[in-house]
Design a protein around this nucleic acid. Structure first.
Lengths: 129, 129
DNA sequence: CAGCATCCAGCTTGATACTG
DNA sequence: CAGTATCAAGCTGGATGCTG
């Protein structure tokens, strides 16, 4: 198990020591944001989540959920039934993070026309090879 | 030059097609956020940026800046002097993104005590092996 | 169903060397 | 100074097979 590797290199965010760096990577990483987004609508079971975060492998979903749970952003509720049932939901902290992340995403989506336009200009200028 | 690979797999953010996905990765990626953060304080030259975003290689900084410029988040101003002088600064769009990103980061930093506490609890419970 | 362990391909990154 | 080109190494993530 090499999940929680916590590399945490020697750089930081704004020239200040940044202990949140690791957590931030769990949030903004490949699957973290998608997972938080999916859970923002409500509690979900493992395989529901897997379908919701389309494209994630069970390995990555598992790793992602463990990281988020460890950081206190997601709560894991396991019923010892058979077959097992495990529900995941955002903690209050996780909701705060998810909302801000969604805010960023929606801001961006609202301006994608600007982005696309900028890309066209850029590609015309330099993409000319 | 393999920079703008734009893989853009078949998944999306909230079960909706998500064209902003690529840009979001530039923003939240390894160096994108750091770079936006550094530029939030004002215009910087390449090597100033390199020192500010401590740990970044010139290759990665170059790639990151190109991606952000292409997305219209960063403006590049090159003086054809000798030695050359190139200044980078956020565009209005970039500032909007940077502010939201910083908001997220500061929210997180303000609650790192909760995160750290959650980790302790988690490690006690499961880290017990 | 809900995961864990292993294998390994390929992308990402960092070092290094070079250009204008 | 401001990059580009090339290359090796290492981590990331997907596929697969197995457990409870």
């Amino acid at each position: 198990m090499e999940s929680t590797q916590e590399i945490d290199l020697a750089y930081d965010v704004f020239a200040k020591a940044c202990p949140s760096r690791g957590t931030l990577e769990h949030i903004t990483g490949r699957w973290g944001g998608l997972t938080l987004g999916a859970l923002h609508d409500g509690s979900l079971r493992f395989n529901e989540l897997r379908r919701r975060v389309d494209g994630v492998s069970e390995k990555m979903l598992s790793q992602t959920l463990q990281a988020l749970e460890r950081d206190g952003l997601v709560h894991r509720e396991a019923q010892p039934t058979n077959p097992p049932r495990v529900d995941y939901e955002l903690t209050p902290l996780g909701r705060g993070v998810a909302e801000r992340l969604i805010g960023l995403i929606q801001f961006l989506e609202g301006r994608m026309d600007e982005v696309l336009e900028a890309r066209l200009r850029y590609d015309e200028t330099r993409g000319a090879r």
